[in-house]
Design a protein around this nucleic acid. Structure first.
Lengths: 349, 349
DNA sequence: CAAAATAATTGGAACGTTCCAATTTTGTCA
DNA sequence: TGACAAAATTGGAACGTTCCAATTATTTTG
C-alpha cells in the first residue's frame, strides 16, 4: 500500500534513456527527439509519475517555486473572499498555487504564517496586513528579495508595492451625491478610527462637506466595528441625536447593511425615509432589497490586479515598489433614494 | 541585493560546530548540550537563517510536508469561506500551512489544482468536490496514500472519508416546523436537482410532508441556481401558481435571502405574509431583517472538524475512510413567522 | 568518403537537509 | 589513574531533481 515514489530514474530505466533525457522531456526542451519524447511521456503516464517540485526547486536555487502566499486579515468578510478568488484565478492560470492564510487581525498569527510560508519557499506574497502591522514585520521578507504586494491597507515605511482603492475620492463622491439629492445632515457611520483606511475615507467625507458648503458636525461621525452588527450599533446611536441625520455614508457595505437593518427596526424604510450609501460593492449589494447604492471597488478585480503585479515583479526578478491607487466609482441603486431605474431592477430578476 | 541563502552549513561554520549538530538543534533534539544549543540558536538569529522545508522534506522521503490542500467549489459563497477559516484555524495551530484553491465548479480546474498540489507534496486534502466529480478523479490520490476528506458533498464510489451535514433530517425538521405552524402548501425552492445534496434535502422535505399527512405537489418543488439570484427566480415562479404556497423551505440561505427579496418585490412581507426557512445558517442569517429561520450547520465548525479528521489520518499514517454526518439543528428566528422572541432581537442590537 | 557541423544524449556534481554509524569528549567509579 | 559508560558531536551518504560539459549519433558538405 505504501507505494514508494516513482522517480525520474525509474522512468529513465523503463524508457531506456538517461535521467537527463527524462528531465529534458519534463521541461519540454526542444533538444530532445520526437520519438524519444513520445516514449518517455508514455512511460511517465504508465508509471503514474508525479513531478517532485521540491527537489527541482532545491536544485535551481536561483528561482521560482511556483508558490505565492496570500494572507488576509479577515477571510469571513466576503470582500476578502472575493479578493482571494481574484488572486486565485490569475495565479492558477500562471501555473502557480497559493498558500492562503487568515490572520483574524492578529499580528502574531501573521508573523507566524508569513515565516512558515517563507520556509516553504514562496516566491511572492500578497498581504492585507493585520491592524498594527509594522514595517519591521516585512523587513526580512523584502531583504531576502521576495516581492510583496500590499492590498487594501498600506504599511507606512515598508518598501513594498501596494494596491489600494481611492478611499478619499470614493467617499467624497458618495457625500456629494447625497448632498446633491438635498441632504444636509449626512452621517459617517462605522469603521475603526485607528486605521488608515478609515481616515482616508473620513477625509473624503470632510472635504466633500466643505466643497458643498455643508457644516461639519462631529457628532455625525460614529465609529463602530466594520461589520453588520457594527452598522446596527452605529445607526442606533445616530438616531439618538437631537437633530437626526437624514442620510449616511457607511464605512463599508457590511456596515451599510447593518444600518438598513437598524433603520427597519425603527420602522424607517432605507431608501425612502433615510438614504444609505455603502463602500465596496460586494455581490449582495445589487441583489439586496433595497439594492445598495455604494462605491464599487471590485474586490475580485483588485485581487486579479494584485496577482498580476506580483507575478510581474516575480518574473522581473527585481521588485521596485510601486503604489497603485485603484479608482472607484459610485454605483447608484436604491438605498440612497435617488430615482429608481425600473429597468435595472427587472434585469436582475 | 540578491542575498544568497544562509544554509545550515553557514550556521555550522559560524558557530564552530558541524552541520549535523545544527540539524539536531533545529529539531530540538535532547541530544545536544545546552550551551551548544544556545550558541547555535544565537547564530541562527544573527544570520537570519530560514529553514528550507523543501530540502528537509526531500531527505525524509517517508513523510510529512506540513502542507495540506483545501479545494472548494465556490469560495465566493460565504459558507465555504467560513469553512476555509475553520480549516485554517486548526491547521495553522498544528504548524501546517494550507494551499487553497477555488474550482468554480469546474472539474478540469479541479484536476489541475489537485495535481499541482500533489507535485508540491501535500500530505492531505480537504475537498468540496465540483459538480460532476468522478471517483476516478480521486483514485491516484488515494492510491498514493494521501488522505482525503470530502466535505459537504460526497463522491460515490470513492474510498475517502467524508463529512457532510444531515441534509435529510435538517430539511425534515424545517418542514415539520412549518406544518406545525399551520402551513399546508409548502414549497421547496432552489438548488440544482442533479446533486446529491439536493436530493437528500428533497427527500427530507417529502418524508416530512408524508409524516404530517400533507399532500405532495410536484409543482411546489422549484429548482434554481443555489444563489440569491436563483432564489428570486424561484419565488417568482412559485408565485405564478394558481394555488400559491404560503411557506417555503429553501435549498440554502442564499436562496432564502433571494426569496425574501422576491417577496418584497411583490409587496409581500417575509415572516408576515409568507414563511421562509433557509439552510446553512451563514453569519448574515441572524442579523438580516427579518432574521432568518434556518438549519444551522456551522460551517466554521465543520471546517475545524474536517481538518481535525484529516490531521488524525495524516498522523495515523493510514487513512481508513470514515463517513461522518454532522447533525444540524433548526434555529427559529423571524422569517418563518413563529412567535418572535423580543429578547433575542434586542440582544443583537 | 572524410571532415566538419549539427542534433541528441549522457554521467556526474550540486542544491540543503536528515539520518546513520562512528568518533570524540566528558563523567563515573573502583 | 585507568577502564568503562554515557553524552555529545561528527562526516558522509542519501533524497529527486537540474545543469553543465562531454560524448555519441546523425547529417551536411566539399
Amino acid at each position: 500500500m505504501v507505494k514508494d515514489r516513482v522517480t525520474v530514474i525509474d522512468i529513465a530505466r523503463a524508457a531506456g534513456v538517461s535521467k537527463s533525457t527524462v528531465s529534458l522531456v519534463l521541461q519540454a526542451s526542444p533538444l530532445v527527439n520526437e520519438a524519444t519524447r513520445a516514449k518517455v511521456n508514455a512511460v511517465i503516464r504508465d508509471l503514474g509519475y508525479v513531478y517532485n517540485r521540491g527537489a527541482a526547486n532545491l536544485r535551481q536555487s536561483n528561482s521560482k517555486s511556483k508558490i505565492i502566499g496570500i494572507v488576509v486579515n479577515d477571510l469571513t468578510n466576503s470582500f476578502f473572499a472575493e479578493l482571494a478568488v481574484g488572486v486565485d484565478m490569475v495565479v492558477q492560470s500562471a501555473g502557480y498555487v497559493q498558500f492562503l492564510a487568515n490572520t483574524a487581525e492578529s499580528v502574531d498569527r501573521q508573523r507566524e504564517v508569513i515565516s512558515s510560508m517563507r520556509e516553504h519557499g514562496i516566491s511572492g506574497l500578497i498581504l492585507s496586513p493585520a491592524r498594527g502591522t509594522d514595517a519591521n514585520d516585512l523587513k526580512p521578507l523584502v531583504a531576502s528579495g521576495i516581492p510583496v504586494v500590499n492590498v487594501v491597507r498600506q504599511v507606512t515605511g515598508a518598501k513594498v508595492s501596494s494596491l489600494i482603492s481611492d478611499n478619499h475620492a470614493g467617499m467624497r463622491d458618495a457625500v456629494r451625491h447625497l448632498a446633491g439629492l438635498g441632504h444636509h445632515r449626512i452621517a459617517f457611520l462605522g469603521g475603526f478610527p485607528d486605521t488608515a483606511v478609515f481616515n482616508e475615507r473620513l477625509q473624503g467625507y470632510r472635504d466633500a462637506l466643505s466643497d458643498m458648503d455643508l457644516a461639519l458636525h462631529d457628532e455625525l461621525v460614529v465609529s463602530s466595528a466594520p461589520s453588520r452588527a457594527g452598522g446596527v450599533a452605529a445607526i442606533e446611536r445616530a438616531l439618538l441625536l437631537r437633530e437626526r441625520p437624514t442620510a449616511a455614508v457607511c464605512f463599508n457595505d457590511a456596515v451599510a447593511f447593518g444600518v438598513c437593518d437598524g433603520l427597519r427596526a425603527h420602522r424607517l424604510d432605507p431608501g425612502e425615509d433615510f438614504a444609505v450609501i455603502g463602500f465596496d460593492d460586494v455581490i449582495e449589494a445589487q441583489t439586496a432589497v433595497p439594492a445598495l447604492t455604494t462605491i464599487s471597488v471590485d474586490p475580485q478585480g483588485m485581487g486579479r490586479r494584485a496577482a498580476q503585479l506580483l507575478l510581474k515583479q516575480i518574473n522581473a526578478g527585481r521588485a521596485d515598489a510601486e503604489a497603485i491607487v485603484s479608482s472607484v466609482r459610485l454605483v447608484v441603486r436604491q438605498s440612497c433614494g435617488a430615482a429608481i431605474d425600473k429597468r435595472e431592477r427587472l434585469s436582475l430578476l
